[in-house]
Design a protein around this nucleic acid. Sequence first.
RNA 1: GACCCCAUCGUCUAGAGGCUAGGACACCACCCUUUCAAGGUGGUAACACGGGUUCGAAUCCCGUUGGGGUCGCCA
Length: 473
Amino acid sequence: MSEPTAPTDKVVTRFAPSPTGFLHIGGVRTALFNWLFARHFGGTYLLRIEDTDRARSTQEAIDAILDGLAWMGLSGDEAPVFQFARAARHVKVAQGLLEQGKAYYCYATPEELAEMREVAKAEGRSMRYDGRWRDRDPAEAPHGIPPVIRLKAPQDGETVVQDLIQGEVRVVNAQLDDMVLLRSDGTPTYMLSVVVDDHDMGVTHVIRGDDHLTNTFRQLQLYDALEWRAPQFAHMSLIHGADGAKLSKRHGALGVEAYRDMGFLPEAVFNYLLRLGWSHGDDEIISRDDAIKWFGLDAVGKAAARFDLTKLSSLNAHYLRLADDARLIDLMAPRLTEITGAPLDDAGRARLEKGLAGLKTRAQTLIELADKAAFYVRPRPLVPTDKAARLLAGGADHLRAVAGILADVAEWQAEALESAVRGYVEVSGAKLGEVAQPLRAALTGSTESPGLFEVLEVLGRDESLARIGDALT
RNA sequence: GACCCCAUCGUCUAGAGGCUAGGACACCACCCUUUCAAGGUGGUAACACGGGUUCGAAUCCCGUUGGGGUCGCCA
């Protein structure tokens, strides 16, 4: 519930994803909180790839995770630790426990376990291994059945977690069973590996998803058996989908790269995720530096939060405006090329640099920004939208007249262009919109755009006049 | 089902016994305006329910309801 005092040891946190799929948004948030906590206390943030499930771990997933973290600026402070590579160490620890009589061989077959499960279900309780080999003489071991090694866990009393987010959570030991440490093929289980690795890596604070809370009791029992000092735990609530259901693969859970591809900036995702379940008074827009300064586990909420793409979008719109123009243009380039069919050239880039400020307030994502910027770099002649075409048809006379006036403007600059057009509007007795809209349609091919005179200036005299000429033919 | 956890506007949240329950996103209205945005102003909107404790509960306790997590030789 609280964080009574600052940690006395040097803080070491870790993010430990298993590479069995993409790095989903919940994982990014876990990484973020670990990173922030370490940074706040001047500690170290480590990465561990939990690749012990050889069948499901893929290099592709490892790359996706590493790339996603890099994109978010959440790469580990040191090279990632690969858990599978440490299997021999894990096995050794299990053997040690066996020698001390704190673990034992269990020959229960999968069939026997399935039976226990059935019985448990029928009796309306959770499945627990009944400890049938716990105190049995190893001499009774059946032939041909490779055993697993189980921890001889305490059967009385209770195990208590002082969770930095959830507060004190306790469970009676009778509720827990003797967990498997080494599988029958001799490989270590997750429970063992995590405990050994966190210990060996000097992890002081385990900040992870709520789904690990019940695992913590077992891990604590292991720490006890090993006589190791357990790290502090902090379990953060999970992110839910917009409808309140758990975010799952078929439920809107996407990899970070999906958000990147949707046109979100990493700083927006950072800010959004930070505020999901954590707050600092009424602050909404929070910089990385302030986040580091302010972050603490005591302000992390216990309730699950729903993922809201709309709010992310609004944050993204904010960061888009703050972002450096050259960077934005680089990020938009691929999309622009897709639209125009040609790589962005220097002339196009120059126009974008000039017109970007006027575009930024009109987009929430990079995709939108590129779409709205496209008219600046599209090759002539422009293909007008249906609405724009109608405007062109109805306003041809005004357009023709204003084209002549524009051609005579000495200084091709927004202010002068505006007074020229307004001058025409006045003498012709038309409304500004009756002149401006056809002009906009000719210049942009659309009925919506940044300010008309800004567009004229950015496009330049030659291009502007040429586009108007195109529209008039 | 068993065990554990959670519960303030539609959403993210502030609130740590006494607030006209605040902010942000979204939404609505108005202003600004050459379009679309942006911006400005104002507005609608919440303490899940029921019991306690207390002079006084969004805040503390119990229960109900609802939601979530876990129950693997996966991680």
